[in-house]
C-alpha cells in the first residue's frame, strides 16, 4: 500500500491524484485534515485569501487517518489507538514547512513574552486568542499572506505595523515586549510577529517522495500546488 504522510493541501492533492490513477493511498495526519489551511480557515480574511485551496481540501473525500507517523522503515504510527508497526510499499512525505525561529531571523535583545513566529501567531489567532494589542510584524522577505493578515488584525482592533526589513532587530521590555529597535528606529509595541522564512518540517527524517510545502517552504500555495502538479504528472 502507498502511504501519504500529512493531510494538508499537498497530502490531500497527492492522494486525489493517486486515486484518479487508480491507486488507493492511506493518508495519515497527526492532527487531522487540512494542515495549516484548517487554521487559516478560522480567520475570515485568510479563509477568503486561501479559498481555492481550502475548498479543495474540504471537498475532497479522501479519508484521513489520525495518527502520527514517526518512521517509514519500519512504518510506525502512534495514535490514541496504540502503536502500529508494519511494512508499507511507498511513501509521499507531505509534512509541510515550519517558520524559522526568531533567532534565526536575526531577532536579538530580551527574551520576553510576546514574541511569536508568524506561524504561531496565526495559530493563536485561529484559536481566538489575542496576541497583544500593538503588533509589529517584521518580515525578512515578502509574503502575500501578510496583507490579508494585516486586514484581519486591523478589523479586530489591533494596532498593526508591518515592516519589510532585513535589518537586525532588538527587543526591549521587562516581562513583555515593550519596543523593538530596528534599522535605527524604535517601534513601541506589545507583540512582535517575526517572519524570517520557512524550512522543511520533517523532523523524523521520513523517507519517501517529498511533495508540496516540505519542498517549497512558503505561505504561497500557488507554489505548493505547482510542486504537487510537477510531481504527480
Amino acid at each position: 500500500m502507498v502511504v501519504v504522510v500529512g493531510a494538508g493541501y499537498a497530502g490531500i492533492s497527492v492522494a486525489e491524484k493517486l486515486r484518479e490513477k487508480g491507486v488507493e493511498a492511506k493518508v495519515y495526519d497527526m492532527r487531522g485534515k487540512g494542515g495549516e489551511l484548517a487554521e487559516f480557515a478560522k480567520i475570515d480574511e485568510l479563509k477568503e485569501y486561501y479559498a481555492k485551496y481550502i475548498e479543495k481540501v474540504d471537498e475532497s473525500e479522501v479519508e484521513v487517518i489520525k495518527g502520527c507517523v514517526v518512521s517509514t522503515n519500519p512504518f510506525k504510527v502512534i495514535s490514541p489507538q496504540g502503536l502500529e508497526v508494519k511494512k508499507e510499499d511507498g511513501f509521499f512525505i507531505c509534512t509541510g514547512a515550519v517558520d524559522l525561529t526568531p533567532a534565526a531571523s536575526e531577532i536579538y535583545g530580551k527574551r520576553v513574552a510576546g514574541i511569536y513566529t508568524l506561524e504561531t501567531a496565526i495559530r493563536l489567532l485561529a484559536m481566538g486568542k489575542r496576541i497583544g494589542n500593538k503588533v509589529l510584524v517584521v518580515a525578512r522577505k515578502e509574503e502575500d499572506i501578510l496583507k490579508p493578515l494585516e486586514r484581519y488584525l486591523v478589523e479586530k482592533d489591533f494596532e498593526v505595523e508591518v515592516l519589510l526589513s532585513k535589518e537586525p532587530a532588538e527587543v526591549y521590555g521587562s516581562r513583555r515586549v515593550e519596543r523593538v529597535e530596528i534599522g535605527g528606529e524604535s517601534v513601541s509595541c506589545d507583540a512582535l510577529v517575526v517572519y524570517g522564512g520557512r524550512i522543511p518540517f520533517n523532523p523524523k527524517n521520513l523517507k519517501g517522495k517529498l511533495a508540496g510545502n516540505v519542498v517549497e517552504c512558503t505561505y504561497d500555495y500557488e507554489k505548493v500546488e505547482k510542486n504537487v502538479q510537477s510531481i504527480m504528472f
Partner: peptide, 18 residues
C-alpha cells in the same frame, strides 16, 4: 509505548514531533 497508550490514550497524541 503500547502499554502507556493502553493505560492513557493521551500518550498516543503526539504534540511535538521533533
Amino acid at each position: 509505548i503500547r502499554k502507556a497508550i493502553d493505560e492513557n490514550e493521551d500518550f498516543g497524541e503526539i504534540v511535538c514531533l521533533c
